[in-house]
Design a protein around this nucleic acid. Sequence first.
DNA 1: GCCAACGTTGGC
DNA 2: GCCAACGTTGGC
Length: 156
Amino acid sequence: MSRKYWLVKCEYDTCSFEELSNRPNGIGYWRGVRNYQARNFIRDEMEEGDQAFFYQSNCKEPGVAGVVDIVRAGYPDPSQFDDAHQYYDEKSTKDDPRWFSLDVQWAKAFEPYVSLQDMKENKRLKDMKVVQKGQRLSIQPVTEKEFDIVCKMGGL
DNA sequence: GCCAACGTTGGC
DNA sequence: GCCAACGTTGGC
């Protein structure tokens, strides 16, 4: 079992990388992923010990701010059972949960920040999912090679 | 704020 | 099971 690599997206306004670093132990919880492809990655493939890029979307300069460790993955997303929650799913049951969550821990910040534009301009990253047009998936697998390249761009 | 790309829903 | 309509994502 070798370590896997991911890219996890978050809207900048909801959870910036800086905000994550200020939390107790730098731990953040992913809730509300309601896409089946992303769900399958979280439930079936993501494991404790994997690493991920923390990608910020919906902001002036979208891109990767740094690296997080996956500290827990593939457990049922609590928000689906809470009928007061915006992510409540009435069709999901505790015996057969439909949606899953992951927890991440702040690991290392990039310096410099690696913007989407930077990644698009790097020919060696042309097959990376996040640079493809129309790619909206919030949880994406990243190859080891892509992980190394982007880490170098981010000064690690 | 616009709009292209994509996923989901639901009628048939 | 097709596909049009609709909703959402997310870069620009």
